[in-house]
Design a protein around this nucleic acid. Structure first.
Length: 551
RNA sequence: GCGCCCGUAGCUCAGUCGGAUAGAGCGAUAGCCUCCUAAGCUGUAGGCCACAGGUUCGAUUCCUGUCGGGCGCACCA
């Protein structure tokens, strides 16, 4: 926000001149009530004690200095216990259009990330079956967060961790193998905990069609082959589902590769050297209790196999080795008990707590017309991400996922998501963009095209309160986006867009653009709409939602 | 039993580092197309911010406790 930055600079200079230091608790923010001006500062309240002056008196001194310091400021008022309510001039707000025009597709981008390397790991579902709706939420969130972080100046890498080394994978191979035996009429017994989904049978049938001799192989080799084939087949499906959902992963990282390269053993040595690993009851333990966990954790089980945790530590070690300053993991909320031990691991690797973040995504409740759809293994009921995206479209699904904060439960109602109402705000926002485009298109048909770069003076006809409101909103965009990045909270983007869309629809209904009184007013209003449309388009792009030019 | 998350309008949810009179949509209800896209706009009703204490100039926000809901508490992943 230009206004915020400018005011911050002015106030900081004034406070410094008074021989005082800028307190951390000072805030500058748009007040709830518009009559309180454009920005409210609590600096006098926070600083009063240090200055040894009552808040209102300090506020009065600051106000005087502020009025003299910046000609763009129209008014400074002292309110309540000592707030400074600052109002900027209409000219100042009109310049917002010029800033949008200059920045174009980059409008809203900031440099708060300062080029720091960040990694976002998300989805990372075991390749034992297709992605379901819950994975979709994590996928949308991770993908959007990556875009938001990039826009805020981070150097972001997106990654999917493939758990291809554990017990689940052996079980997958076994399940396919047994199905293959079944399909070939060979004797077999199904254990309790094998994978039962129909896709397992499909994979087995597919393998037999290509190689009927499969079932004649020795058991170990057959199961190995089944595992490899099944995993690749399922991973291909997962990758395609993610592509269809417009979700990007730049790196596909194999757990098995860590084990094979000895990275896990190397990590063990590291922990042992730090005195954090010990043997007990035939197992290798990690003393996470000294680092905030509530019990110690096993790394290598007494049967010699590794725990998932062991390779996950090695994986995170690998991440930091690749130079990431910030590592963000997105997990299902049912894994929250795993957080303390991972934090302990990161600490053991010598990293600061702020270099590691976990976003826990709450579960998704899939509904149809208010009725809960059972997430059973039974096929056909839109339980997979693929089916849901096919049914409601990527735009609506993404927007729905991204308009809740991640730690609240999400009711995903297929009927509502298909509806064109405010229950499904994606249309509301997209419609705002389409409307802007429609007006600009119609203007062009009449031969009216505002210059790509407006002249400041040509914006003077923008005097209505609604127009200044729109400009203030657009000016706020960079702040909103950087807050979303720093808070790892993409839902701020969605809410911001709904607010902008609301202001635009309201303006559209109330103020004629093409039928304005003078040609100068028409051009100025077109330029305003174009700027608002640009802001909406940039925001939608961060959500990975299309900004249609017509609806 | 212990730990984490949640509790804000009838419903679904926002509310940033503690700020001024508590926010939106849906639903309810009353209106608005001779005029740039009605997938829209304008009004009205609707609140003990779960409850009780504490911290301070000020608490929906921070702390403690209680109640209610969800999820964890593996040599599973």
């Amino acid at each position: 926000m230009r206004a915020r930055q400018q005011l911050l600079a002015s106030l900081q200079a004034i406070v410094k001149d008074m021989g005082l230091s800028w307190p951390e608790k000072a805030t500058l923010e748009p007040p709830r009530d518009k009559s309180f001006g454009d920005l409210a500062a609590n600096i006098a309240l926070v600083l009063a004690k240090d200055a040894g002056v009552p808040p209102r008196e300090l506020a009065s001194r600051l106000a005087g200095a502020l009025r003299d310091s910046d000609p763009a400021i129209d008014a400074v008022e002292i309110a309540g216990p000592g707030f400074l309510n600052v109002t900027y001039s209409p000219d100042f707000w009109r310049e917002t259009v010029l800033h949008v025009e200059a920045a174009g597709e980059r409008y809203g981008a900031t440099t708060v990330g300062a080029g720091r390397k960040a990694q976002v790991e998300y989805v990372s579902a075991n390749p034992t079956g297709p992605l379901h709706i819950g994975h979709g939420r994590g996928a949308a969130l991770g993908d959007c967060l990556a875009r938001v972080l990039r826009f805020a100046g981070y150097d972001v890498t997106t990654e999917y961790y493939i758990n291809d080394a554990g017990r689940q994978m052996r079980l997958l191979g076994l399940s396919v193998w047994l199905r293959a035996l079944e399909l070939s009429g060979r004797p077999f017994t199904m254990p309790e905990d094998f994978y039962r989904g129909d896709y397992i049978k499909d994979i087995a049938a597919e393998m037999l069609a290509k190689d009927p001799g499969l079932v004649d192989l020795p058991e170990a080799e057959g199961q190995d082959r089944c595992f490899e084939y099944a995993m690749n087949s399922i991973m291909d499906g997962i990758k395609q589902d993610l592509i269809d959902f417009r979700v990007e992963h730049q790196v596909w990282f194999s757990e098995l590769s860590l084990v094979r390269e000895g990275a896990v053993e190397k990590t063990f040595e590291r922990l042992k050297a730090a005195g954090l690993a010990f043997e007990q009851d035939g197992a290798l333990w990690f003393r996470t209790t000294t680092l905030g966990d509530d019990k110690d954790r096993v790394l290598r089980k007494s049967d010699g196999t590794l725990t998932y945790f062991a390779s996950d530590i090695a994986y995170h070690d690998n991440k930091y080795d690749r130079g990431f300053d910030l590592v963000v993991d997105i997990w299902g909320a049912d894994h929250h008990g795993y957080v303390p031990r991972m934090r302990a691991a990161v600490a053991a690797l010598g990293k600061r707590p702020e270099q590691f973040d976990v976003i826990l995504v709450q579960l998704v409740n899939l509904l149809q017309g208010g009725e809960q759809i059972a997430m059973s293994t039974r096929a056909g009921q839109f339980e997979t991400l693929h089916d849901v995206v096919k049914e409601v479209g990527a735009d609506a699904a993404r927007f729905m996922f991204l308009s809740r904060k991640s730690d609240s439960h999400l009711d995903f109602d297929l009927e509502l998501v298909k509806q064109r109402s405010m229950d499904n705000p994606v249309y509301y926002v997209q419609y705002a963009h389409a409307r802007v485009c429609a007006v600009l298109r119609k203007a062009a048909e009449r031969g009216i095209v505002p210059p790509a770069r407006m002249d400041a003076a040509a914006l003077a006809p923008l005097t209505l309160p609604e127009e200044l409101d729109l400009l203030r909103l657009v000016d706020r965009m960079p702040d909103t986006l950087s807050a979303a990045a720093e808070g790892l909270a993409p839902h701020h983007v969605s809410f911001y867009l709904m607010e902008v869309a609301g202001a635009l629809h309201s303006y559209y209904a109330k103020v004629p653009v093409l039928n304005a009184d003078t040609p100068e007013t028409i051009v100025a209003r077109l330029a305003l709409l174009r700027a608002v449309g640009r802001a909406v388009a940039n925001g939608l792009n961060l959500l990975g939602v299309e900004a249609p030019v017509a609806m």
